[in-house]
Amino acid sequence: MTETKKRAAGEGRGQDHLIDVRGVSRVYEQGLSKVYALDDVSVHFDSGEFTAIAGPSGSGKTTLLNVIGALDRPTKGDVRVAGRSIGSLGKSEGAAFRLQNVGFVFQAYNLLPVLSGYENAEFTVSLQKVSPKQRRERVMALLDRVGLAEKAHRRPNELSGGEQQRVAVVRALASRPSIVLADEPTANLDHKTGEALLDLMLELQREHGTTFLFSTHDPVVIDRARRIVRMDSGQIAADERQSEAA
């Protein structure tokens, strides 16, 4: 049972959305030609949403997530997060913004090989200068929640791909961000592990109320999302909402 509701791009401008992408273009110059990784994209996300960004390879999913996470700067347009413009943050400001507001889960190589699972999970929290005791409680609770308490002392190369991604999810949530951005978090996992990870993210999202945005190719993964933004050639092709697929 799917209830589809198309939305016009750019609708809701000026409202209080958590993430507000306004007419953003991101252009890469390649020699003489220009590549529009994002082409005048307007879209917004509200607090507590769990949204999949779907689309073929090269459609601009990663670029959109990077622009929202202040990892990349739009060539044109602006992005507002919680009312704050982040389109033109400097390097240091961008880093500070990410540290406080955004949790990241990447496709692979998420973890620092010289740190244990626990230390990796703790990394962003420790940068936030949370007291060691609080830090430990918070991180251990989350590791326990994802079933990794026992393996927390292991180095990444002693963890399976799925376990590594779970550590990354713990790290993304431990810093208590308002947004978690996950760029193809399941792409390197087998189907079952990927699904399990996604279910876990969904549960954690419900528990913490954090806004989740993740990009994916995987149709099964897409079905888990309540909202699907489909991209093509740097533009938003469709913005669908579906009732919860339980």
């Binding site: 390097k91 990410r98 620092l112 962003t124 940068l127």
Partner: peptide, 10 residues
């Protein structure tokens, strides 16, 4: 990765 996670340039 460290930069993405919020470690500033300094």
């Amino acid at each position: 990765l460290l930069g993405a996670l919020g470690l500033g340039p300094w």
